[in-house]
Amino acid sequence: MSETTQPSTVAATPAAQAKYQVRFDQGVDAVRRIAAGADVLVWVDQVADAAPAGIAGDTAAAFVPEAALAEAPGTVVVAGLGDAAAVAAWILAEQERLGRRAFLAVVAAGRSDGGFAADDVLAAGAVIDALTELGIDDTSPEAAVASASYTGLRRAVAHLATASVGGREAIAAGTDAAVLRRAASRDGDATVRVLRRR
């Protein structure tokens, strides 16, 4: 596989994390900061994964803000804790198809009030950890911290996803806590949700 470098058109600001294959940030504005030149945007919204209707198929679009889609130049994949391993395997196959390193922007959706979303960061960390296990490990410091949060708290992620601000808000809005816990468990039968392919 050739070691193709990041396209030179990417702004070389520190916030862009452009020198790294796997980047991480949080919130819609993060797409603008780190997705330039990325082959795949992985949009991570853990609470949306537990929505009663689910987010399979076309309904996935309802959980990815239009602003994020507009800023993402490449393929957009939706992920959560349950399908992190499946998403990583799909990305590895996509990289092999490209015949070069695939540049990835992993974005935790974040809370609507702009606060820290522990559940989304853990889910993004699960995706990054799964990528690392497959050998895609040129991660930015930000991505490494998200991954370490997941690996360090792996045994408690179901509880943390439910007890987080996002989890408690979802429960207050009527989502069953058991559904939230199930969505935070790895699903060996998970399929990858590709929202847009480019």
Score class of each variant (00 low, 15 high):
113 D>I: 05
126 A>C: 08
122 L>F: 04
112 S>R: 15
67 A>I: 00
67 A>C: 01
117 A>W: 14
74 G>E: 07
172 A>D: 15
170 A>V: 06
107 V>M: 10
124 A>Y: 14
75 T>G: 06
104 L>H: 07
111 R>Q: 11
164 S>C: 14
91 I>G: 04
63 F>T: 00
117 A>F: 07
119 D>G: 05
54 G>M: 06
145 V>T: 12
123 A>F: 10
133 E>N: 11
64 V>L: 09
86 A>M: 05
175 T>M: 10
70 A>G: 01
118 A>G: 06
71 E>N: 07
84 A>Q: 05
118 A>F: 08
174 G>E: 13
70 A>R: 13
87 V>T: 10
124 A>P: 14
61 A>C: 00
145 V>P: 02
149 S>R: 13
66 E>T: 03
145 V>H: 11
49 D>N: 13
97 R>C: 03
169 E>H: 13
48 A>F: 03
57 G>R: 13
68 A>S: 11
100 R>N: 01
69 L>N: 01
114 G>F: 03
168 R>P: 05
117 A>R: 13
103 F>G: 00
89 A>V: 02
70 A>N: 07
48 A>G: 06
170 A>N: 12
74 G>R: 12
159 H>Y: 12
69 L>T: 00
111 R>G: 00
156 A>K: 15
137 D>T: 07
102 A>H: 10
126 A>T: 08
56 A>S: 09
90 W>G: 00
82 G>L: 04
147 S>K: 15
157 V>Y: 01
176 D>V: 06
105 A>C: 08
113 D>R: 14
117 A>M: 10
60 A>E: 11
107 V>G: 05
152 G>R: 13
154 R>W: 06
137 D>G: 11
123 A>I: 07
81 L>S: 02
152 G>W: 08
112 S>G: 05
86 A>Y: 05
64 V>I: 15
61 A>M: 03
153 L>S: 14
177 A>W: 03
78 V>A: 15
60 A>P: 02
76 V>W: 08
135 G>I: 10
98 L>A: 12
178 A>N: 12
171 I>Q: 14
122 L>T: 03
91 I>P: 06
55 I>E: 04
123 A>E: 07
62 A>H: 05
155 R>C: 00
106 V>G: 08
128 I>V: 15
172 A>L: 11
172 A>H: 14
91 I>D: 10
94 E>A: 11
157 V>R: 09
102 A>R: 12
177 A>H: 02
83 D>E: 10
147 S>R: 15
